[in-house]
Nucleic acid binder design. Structure first.
Lengths: 323, 323
DNA sequence: TTGTAGGCGTTATCAG
DNA sequence: CTGATAACGCCTACAA
């Protein structure tokens, strides 16, 4: 195993100079830096994480809390984790996952928390180490999310542009910020278009949205588009329409939200709002590492713009659009 | 921070005695052990992972390699990861995820690898640190999986018991061990029942199995059951049958394989073979930790029995069965 | 069975 | 700007 000392010997400097080249390069002359880098490269030096952690009184571990029922967790979480892990690895951090509401905080340098609901506010506020939330919130916690309002605007605007007469928002029956933001985007675009918003909310299960539409079928005449707050909901809407024998996308349009996995596995494939979840994960990781580095300093929030993915549950305007 | 030294002082023993109580309790008298445990408890002592790692020349890190295209990865991987992480955490290990075929092995104590194909054999065999595969293989690597043959037998036997006349196996178009095992289970039960096996293979996408069935619809008369090698495939089969306006489960039965997420999100809900993926993950983690502890000693393999989950894509025999 | 001394690889601190 | 020294908390090896 190559250590700092080996590199130091090779470069004819002290261990401290090597250490500084790594951690405080601005304190070292360019000349020495060059020498040291060369030596590190020749010897293929890999810093020893444990030693660093010990010396700095760190763990180099981040915990990822999933507060939702794991069975209802969206499949895109896998991508989120990949992104997080990527960012952490770059800084020699690694990951522990915590689910099932085991409130044991354990030993680590910081937390990424997802699926926070109002009721979690209290105990999260007690955590002393740095925390970043995945998912927007109104409690002042630092967070990362897609721009949910923009997502709602994107899909609504697109539905209107395709000439659907009635555009209904099918939301998730949760009083949470991300949901309100998507609805706000919908409402804003509707009002700008001088249309009356119409929102219905269901649990985030395909069978619930399916049931909702079956029961209220007569409320939705032909030429209606359903702008949904999740792909799960969109899938249920799609099934209900198919059951009625109506035509998708000519009579009815559907736009989902999430764009990972589920959208691909139905037929016709969902037009949806895609979030770059892996990227979001990366940003989460970086933000947390910064916060750790800065002794818990507030980081604010970061919103990533979502994209519209045009597929088979909405009409074509004509022209060639990507599938 | 409470250290070994603090505990030692409190218990009026040396640091080494405390260390021994933790790592080699058999070398310490019961009397002292009691004292030490009491002291640890009173002080809420938590061992410092970094220090331990440094002293033992370990990293306390395990890498998880995903060799499949991440976009085709099954949603159940999230549960697998939770299981792995749980096992690792118990032994103060943490996790790094690696995807996108970045062949950088990095620094860690061992690897869990999933999605290995024949072409990966070569480079995996070069890895010096302990490796456990998730997914059965014929190359002598230690692995953890469900009993795929048993899974194939379970679903085939159930289909036959429900009186479906023809029972067809819709497999995944991959020359891999897990697929062969599922097929073997199917074939064995068919032969025991003096029925002719009939196997068709498609890519593991719902649209592919759907297409297959659309094209070959006339081959499958009423009273056929499709035993599928994945829920994805089963979902496509279900859609194709519905398109034809045939009745599920009376005219046609469907049984999937995996039992996480996808089975719940279609309608009617899939009868399927469920794997306890989180448990599998836990076992993976434990097996790897053992292997690390035993300096790379061969661990063999561990198969977990899958379960049949009876839902709505197969007939009822009568009686009350869980949904 | 228990204790002592030394070292694991890194970084902070202080001196030059 | 660079170097020597002393931690960081634990474990191995050896001594008692």
């Amino acid at each position: 195993m190559v250590t700092l000392a080996d590199v130091a010997r090779r470069a004819n400097v002290s261990k401290m100079t090597v250490s500084r080249v790594i951690n405080h390069p601005e304190q070292v002359t360019d000349e020495l830096k060059k020498l040291v880098f060369a030596a590190m490269h020749e010897l293929d030096y890999r810093p020893n994480v444990a030693a660093k952690a010990l010396a700095k009184n760190r763990t180099q571990i981040v915990k990822f809390f999933i507060l939702e029922e794991i069975s209802t967790v969206e499949p895109y979480y896998m991508n989120l984790l990949l992104g997080i892990s990527l960012a952490l690895s770059r800084h020699q951090y690694s990951l522990q996952l915590v689910a099932n509401n085991s409130f044991d905080l354990g030993v680590c340098d910081g937390y990424i928390i997802t699926g926070m609901r109002k009721s979690d506010y209290e105990w999260i506020s007690r955590i002393e180490k740095p925390v970043i939330l995945f998912g927007e919130n109104l409690y002042g916690y630092d967070f990362v999310d897609t721009n949910n309002k923009k997502g709602g605007m994107l899909s609504t605007r697109y539905a209107l542009s395709l000439g659907y007469d009635k555009v209904v928002f099918v939301g998730i029956d949760l009083k949470e910020a991300f949901e309100y933001s998507r609805e706000r985007g919908y409402i804003q675009v509707m009002q700008e278009s001088l249309k009356e918003p119409e929102i219905v909310r269901v649990e985030n299960h395909s069978h619930k949205s399916q049931e909702m539409l079956q029961k209220n079928w007569e409320k939705y005449p032909k030429n209606t588009a359903f702008v949904c707050a999740s792909d799960r909901i969109a899938v249920g809407i799609e099934r209900a329409i198919q059951e009625k024998g109506a035509n998708i996308p000519d009579d009815y349009g559907i736009i989902g939200y999430d764009g990972i996995f589920l959208d691909q596995v139905v037929s016709p494939r969902l037009t949806t709002i895609r979030q770059d979840v892996a990227k979001l994960g990366e940003i989460c990781g970086e933000m947390l590492l910064n916060k750790i580095e800065q002794k818990g300093k507030k980081q604010g929030f970061k919103l990533l713009d979502p994209m519209l993915v045009k597929r088979e549950t909405t009409r074509r305007k004509g022209g060639s659009e990507k599938s």
